[in-house]
Amino acid sequence: MTARALDFYFDFMSPFAYLAFQQVPGLCRKYGLEFRPHVANLPRLKLLAGNTGPANVTIPLKLSYLRKDLDRWAAIYDVPLVFPKSLASEPLNKAFLFAADHGEGEAFIRVAWARVWGEGADPADPALLAGLARQFGWNPETVTAWVASPEAADRYEAGTQAAHEAGVFGMPTMIVGDEMWWGNDRLTFMEKSLQAGL
């Protein structure tokens, strides 16, 4: 384990977290940081932070711009970006905890996001969760049952509360030591700090 770590807070519903993930693990390797992903419930985090405004998807004018902006970032990173059929990410978010317990956290994020934001798969589709389970060699029924369990709900809520206590109010958020950056468009600022020996 490295001496320092980068804590990466995400929710599978966030396209900007999907984009940031294309860069952050590589930056961690470049600067000798341990990559530590943390899943949290983004809508609940916003409420905990006092953000009661409407979601972007309910504001047509803003959503139209965001779609163009997302396409620009995807082109820069040379990755596909397809809006999924829904943003109901809770099953996948909880499944990440199962994957992390089995030593496959980062790999699960990569594969799940490739399906959801790379191909437009519905994160709430039980077939998606089952397919991901099989891809990692897990019993789909076991994973589905765990995602629906009280343990998964408790850990998901605890992770969301811990993110709030860490100062997280949006996704993606990256934290190294006492420094925090919010948003895919802040990775340049983050790397400049890492270059300076943060």
Score class of each variant (00 low, 15 high):
162 A>L: 04
12 F>N: 10
193 S>Q: 12
195 Q>E: 13
173 T>W: 06
96 F>V: 08
49 A>N: 13
152 A>D: 05
34 E>C: 02
126 P>D: 03
95 A>H: 06
59 I>A: 07
90 E>W: 00
94 K>Q: 09
13 M>F: 07
100 A>F: 00
3 A>I: 13
184 N>C: 12
198 L>C: 06
180 M>W: 04
17 A>L: 10
110 R>D: 11
104 E>F: 02
197 G>P: 00
21 F>E: 10
49 A>H: 08
107 A>T: 08
41 N>A: 13
5 A>Q: 15
151 E>W: 13
147 V>D: 12
187 L>S: 04
58 T>D: 15
175 I>M: 09
13 M>T: 13
69 D>K: 05
166 A>G: 03
176 V>K: 11
182 W>N: 06
100 A>N: 07
86 S>M: 07
178 D>Q: 15
8 F>K: 07
113 W>V: 00
92 L>F: 02
155 R>S: 02
122 D>H: 04
11 D>C: 15
62 K>E: 02
45 L>E: 08
1 M>A: 15
12 F>P: 13
2 T>E: 14
35 F>P: 06
104 E>T: 10
139 N>I: 04
166 A>C: 00
113 W>C: 01
3 A>P: 09
42 L>V: 14
181 W>R: 06
171 M>E: 07
146 W>V: 02
160 T>A: 03
144 T>M: 14
14 S>M: 11
137 G>D: 03
143 V>F: 07
91 P>V: 01
98 F>M: 08
